[in-house]
């Protein structure tokens, strides 16, 4: 088990090793849902919530079920099943108890199952041998980092509606290049903490 403090992991996964800008996870929904700040914020919140819970849940299942039974090679299929089931459960729960939240968050929930940032966080925390608290911190930090990136990008894209982008670059191409510049800026945080 690695000895890094959960606080360091939390800060590091938001800034220095942002899950989107350095691990490239969750790009599909990042590109598809970053047109408006409101949408980006909604999706971001849902991702943060699901990521904390699935990180905790998956860690427990891996440590207390898969390792004692010696079936670590089934880890991928178990991880994705847990995520899919959890998202389904949250959707039903929210629909039943808070219709307002359901309408705000509802459409984003099914999108989350296929957001590779969620599965990526679960796979990475096992690869890096995190403990329970470290995994939860990583899930939280990863989610917040992802939300930060998508909200920033949505703000930029709203402004960009008024700019004259060369024709072949319109759409995804220019968004990619901006993301690249954003990643460079985030590299400036690299001196802050190391994991």
């Amino acid at each position: 088990m690695s000895e890094v403090s959960p606080w360091v992991i939390l800060i590091a996964s938001i800034f220095t090793s942002n899950i989107l800008l350095t691990n490239f996870l969750g790009m599909c929904s990042f590109l598809a849902c970053s047109r408006q700040v409101g949408t980006a914020l909604g999706l971001g919140t849902a991702v943060v919530f699901v990521m904390i819970c699935t990180a905790a849940l998956n860690w427990c299942i891996y440590t207390y079920v898969l390792i004692p039974l010696g079936i670590e090679h089934l880890w991928f299929i178990i991880a994705i099943a847990v995520i899919a089931a959890f998202v389904q459960f949250v959707e039903m729960f929210v629909e039943r108890f808070s219709p307002t939240l359901y309408h705000a968050l509802g459409i984003f929930l099914p999108l989350i199952t296929v957001n590779c940032a969620i599965l990526g966080a679960s796979l990475l925390m096992i690869t890096r041998h995190y403990g329970f608290l470290q995994s939860v911190a990583f899930g939280f930090g990863g989610g917040v980092g992802w939300m930060l990136a998508i909200v920033l990008m949505a703000g930029l894209r709203q402004k960009m509606t008024y700019s004259d982008v060369p024709r072949p670059f319109k759409g995804v191409a220019v968004v990619m290049i901006i993301t690249g510049i954003m990643a460079m800026i985030f590299m400036g945080f690299a001196g802050m903490v190391k994991i």
């Binding site: 995804v172 220019v174 290049i177 993301t179």
Partner: peptide, 28 residues
């Protein structure tokens, strides 16, 4: 070195997609 790091990936792919758009006449 930036090409090996994360930003290089985004920028390379951005330019490749733009090149594809240019060649296939997309975005008309």
């Amino acid at each position: 070195v930036v090409m090996i790091l994360a930003p290089g990936a985004f920028i390379t792919l951005g330019f490749l997609i733009a090149l594809y758009n240019y060649m296939s006449g997309a975005n008309d």
